[in-house]
Amino acid sequence: MAGPFILGISSGSGLGVALVIFLGVEAGLLFELSGIARSWIMVCAAALGSFGVLLAIILASARLKDSVTLLILGLMLGAASSALISILQYFSQATNIQAYMMWSFGSLGSLSWNELMIFSVIIIIGMIMSIGLSKSLNALLLGANYAESMGVDLKIIRLMIIINTSLLAGTITAFCGPIAFFGLAMPHIARMLFNTTNHLLLTPLIILIGGILMLLFDTVSQLPSMEATLPINAVTALLGAPFVVYLLLRKRNIHYTFDK
């Protein structure tokens, strides 16, 4: 049940982006920098924001064994980020608020080729890292103690997972806006379709299914009879939220345990 949106990771990177848009423009920073440098700053801010939230969650997870509490913690961190963003908005000029609002709707089409370059480099690195982490994630299916007894260095792997997730979630959020429920739903869809828990298979499958579905959603968002494009964030949430409700009803409890 833990997706980047639910755990507040997207909100964290949203906060990073908001800080850049609102404070950066105030300081006149963004006008002086070229396009590429600006997108780098956005990426770094977003990745740092999600990194912060993730770090808080991982630190808390050492103390909390209950996954429900962890989800609530994520929601709280998300709420705190949103509150900070609201305050920033309150003291900002109308043009910046509009820029931020446009960003938060989410869009797959508003990137320049230069930005796309940065985007693809980071995403490819992230995907390779995800596949590299599969082996340890498989061992972790048996629980932390078993994984450690089989030679998984928990500290390093945890750190790698945090860095990779914040890099991926941060970059995507910075460039495409906060896209809700997509990251949560994809692994479940892949697992339902292919009935496997092997991450080495799941990771490429999730990347593929995710890519296909995202293109499908983007097509839906560009309604044929209308000039305007629906915000992609609204489309994923509208279609994703019912799916999450369905998952909740099907599983009845959030814990992924031995109960069938």
């Binding site: 629980g143 078993y146 007894s149 828990t197 992924y256």
Partner: peptide
């Protein structure tokens, strides 16, 4: 060294 612990794995579908 290998261990068999009392805890059960999370992944029942393995």
């Amino acid at each position: 060294i290998s261990v068999v612990l009392t805890e059960k794995p999370f992944a029942a579908h393995l």
